[in-house]
Amino acid sequence: MLVIRNLSAGYGDTQVLWDINMDIKEGEIVALIGVNGAGKTTLLKTLMGLVTPWSGSVTFRGQEVGGKDTYHMVKQGLNMTPQGRWLFAGMSVEDNLLTGAYLRRDKEIKQDLARIYRLFPRLGERKHQSAGTLSGGEQQMCALGRSLMSRPVLLLLDEMSLGLAPIVVDMLLDLVAEIRRQGTTVLLVEQDVEEALRRADRGYVLEGGRIVMSGTSSDLLSSEKLREAYLGL
């Protein structure tokens, strides 16, 4: 579904991503792991067109999309739930969710909204409240709900766990399987290596802007090198 070949990108004169190669197949949950500053968020932003690639190619569902505008990517079915949530603080929860369906013109938006409220009853209780007044966990739910409102084909989840209580993180990560069941492929970006790999089929390890390791989750979890570097075992 998503094929990344020799992708390089950065900001200004600073190169952040070096020669990235990745493949994501339909229906997969793929984990992208790495420490702070490894380039995980930059990679996602490049895929979304928020950062312009320097070289290399990105093919999404058979179409070359590298360097296309963000709204074009969203139209193609790519969506990102950003780290730090980026909610529209001045708008109500419901309006935030509805902006997720911004490019949709079908009649099932109301239905999907009801689905989101079933998935996150807390959002339903607070739908008229300004999004800026939500707690961290609720904001993350709102951001995830907003992404789902676009009916993404491929969802990029950027560090949902950031600054959240473990119990909320667990609940959100458990939802990833549910999201896949509903037909969305997921690229899960996490710092919590074990939690991420336990829920993914495969994983890529990003270090210093390069992919240094990849494989199935079980392979990665049992890899000596990874256990040493990330799990401290």
Binding site: M80, L87, F88, Y102
Partner: peptide, 21 residues
């Protein structure tokens, strides 16, 4: 108008939901 409000409130998020900002 909502689109403009979204841009005012968080432009990157507005881009991320697919608005041609």
């Amino acid at each position: 108008g909502n689109t403009l409000l979204a841009i005012k409130s968080d432009e990157v998020a507005a881009q991320a939901v697919g608005i041609n900002t």
